[in-house]
């Protein structure tokens, strides 16, 4: 039980004076994902088949590799921003929340790096 005043509880440790950057980046990444997602789906569907050689050849084109890298990086970034919000919404214990946010951030960085690495490997031909 706490005898702190209600206003004292609400004011707490004050404003973090942060959050607009996260909000703005979430909008920017979602905006960027609109054309990137459409391009990704349309390009994949317009391939004659999903044979390894055909997809690898498609991925070795400069524009394809460039846009794929953008798609993976922006997608992972947007996902990280979104999952962060979900964790902040539902995980309330401070220690668990901080730990979850660290794990989520690292996992997204790993996924993005792995995606970029895979694209470059195919694009530069060593996996073909």
């Amino acid at each position: 039980m706490s005898l702190r005043s209600p206003l004292g509880r609400v004011l707490g440790t004050g404003s973090a004076k942060e959050g607009v950057q996260h909000w703005w980046l979430q909008r920017l990444t979602s905006l960027a994902l609109v054309p990137l997602s459409i391009w990704f789906v349309v390009s994949l569907l317009s391939l004659p088949s999903f044979d390894h050689a055909i997809v690898a050849a498609w991925m070795s084109q400069s524009w394809t590799a460039l846009l794929l890298v953008l798609f993976v990086v922006v997608g992972a970034w947007h996902s990280q921003l979104g999952v962060r919000v979900v964790v902040e919404d539902y995980v309330h214990a401070t220690g668990v929340r901080t730990l979850t946010l660290v794990v989520v951030t690292f996992a997204h960085a790993l996924l993005a790096a792995a995606g970029v690495f895979a694209i470059l490997k195919v694009a530069f031909g060593s996996a073909a």
């Binding site: 404003s15 004076k17 959050g19 909000w23 919000v85 902040e88």
Partner: peptide, 14 residues
Amino acid sequence: LDELQDPFRLYRCH
């Protein structure tokens, strides 16, 4: 605006 700019105070609104 300074006082509101906070992940919880304002940005919990979705």
